[in-house]
Amino acid sequence: MTMTAELQAPTVAAPQTARTPWSTRLARPLLGLLLPLSLALAWEFLVWAGWSNGRLVPPPSKVFTTIAELARSGELARHITTTLIRVGVGFGLGVVAGTVLGGICGYWGLARRLIDPTVQALRAIPSIAWVPLFILWLGIFETSKVALIAVGVFFPVYLGVTGAILSVDRKIVEVGRIFRLSGPAMIRRILLPAVLPAYVVALRVGLGLGWMFVVAAEFMGASEGLGYLLIDGQQLGKPAQIVAAIVIFATIGKATDWLLELSTAPLLRWQDSFARQGGAA
């Protein structure tokens, strides 16, 4: 007696990504405002109740009044524009240098052995240590400020690109070699898609450091910029102006990070990641 067994492969349904309702997409960024707004309201209440005089740490109402006065006088727009230009130019220069050098060191082993130790040593130098040297080399005007911001952006971008290339799965590279892909084709079809997720993260880290370095840059004899507002508030004993500058830094920094994330999202649309499915509930 013979029995015929039929082996049937299990049917796996293709994953379907549910479209997120517009109300949910709107609620997610608003949810991020819950913590800072709660802290601001709590501090406003403490000052209003008389549990703090609010002299050294002014309440949000006084901070927003200071921001409104700066906006009415036209100073706020001038300082924000100056700082944005500095960060934008420095970020662009740092990204170009970090991407090119990181790509060379990640793809070419000899260049990595020659250049990477020096770059790692320079990375350990604090940002403030560059200030007197850049002033001596480039003067006290815009060139030295932009150069300092570019230095801050360069290192995370360089590390991100180099590390991403070195971490590419060897089996994927071997597949490209089996298909006899040329060097440019290997970069375009194998390395670039594998590097992009880490590269986007490196860009966001570099942008954050660019905003940090612009404060040190604007300490170098600046007469305009949000960093100048910090120094002016400290010298004149205006804590509300200092906190207002910090709030503006945080707001613009978050806005630029969001724009960068939004602009790079199409490059990562092919990913079927945990985050794209909504993450944990």
Rank of each mutant, 00 (worst) to 15 (best):
V200A: 06
G227E: 01
L84C: 07
A164V: 10
T4M: 03
I125S: 06
S182W: 03
R112L: 04
T24H: 10
K62C: 00
L30S: 04
A14K: 09
M186E: 08
F274S: 01
A281T: 14
V201K: 06
K238M: 13
R188W: 12
R86N: 12
P36L: 00
V157Q: 03
I252G: 10
P156K: 03
Q16Y: 08
K238P: 05
A124S: 14
I242F: 01
A250L: 11
D116Q: 07
L229R: 02
V96E: 11
P21F: 01
K62G: 05
L133S: 08
D116C: 03
S273A: 04
L268G: 09
I115R: 03
R19T: 15
A202T: 05
V215D: 05
Q241E: 03
R78Q: 15
S273D: 06
R28T: 09
R123L: 10
M3R: 15
L191C: 00
I140P: 12
V119W: 06
A13Q: 10
I135P: 08
V173E: 15
L93I: 15
I140F: 14
L26E: 02
L114V: 10
L159W: 07
P117H: 01
A27I: 01
I128A: 14
A147S: 15
M186T: 11
Q277E: 08
K171E: 15
T4H: 05
Y107K: 04
A281C: 13
V151W: 04
V243D: 00
S73V: 02
L192T: 05
W258N: 12
R177E: 12
S263I: 15
V57G: 00
W270G: 06
I178N: 13
L26A: 13
A42I: 00
A281F: 12
W137H: 08
S144Y: 05
K171G: 15
K238I: 08
Q8C: 09
R78T: 15
M212Q: 14
A280M: 03
T4G: 01
G74W: 05
A18V: 10
A185I: 06
V195E: 11
E174W: 13
M1W: 09
N53R: 09
A40Q: 00
P10T: 09
L268M: 14
M1S: 14
A164N: 08
R204N: 15
A222Y: 10
R180A: 14
S61R: 07
P266W: 06
E224T: 15
I172F: 13
R25M: 09
Y228D: 06
Q235I: 12
I80W: 03
R28Q: 10
E174V: 12
V47G: 00
L7F: 09
S61W: 05
G139F: 07
L209H: 14
P15E: 11
V243M: 04
V47L: 00
G90Q: 02
P132C: 06
G208F: 07
Q234F: 12
L159N: 05
A280R: 08
M186F: 07
P58K: 00
G225P: 11
G103I: 05
G98S: 08
G74K: 06
G221F: 05
A49H: 09
F213G: 02
L166F: 07
A216V: 13
T2G: 12
A68G: 09
I231C: 03
F249H: 04
D257A: 13
L181K: 07
L122P: 14
V161H: 04
V168R: 11
L207D: 03
S144I: 04
D116F: 07
A124G: 10
L46G: 02
D116A: 06
F141V: 12
V173A: 15
R55P: 12
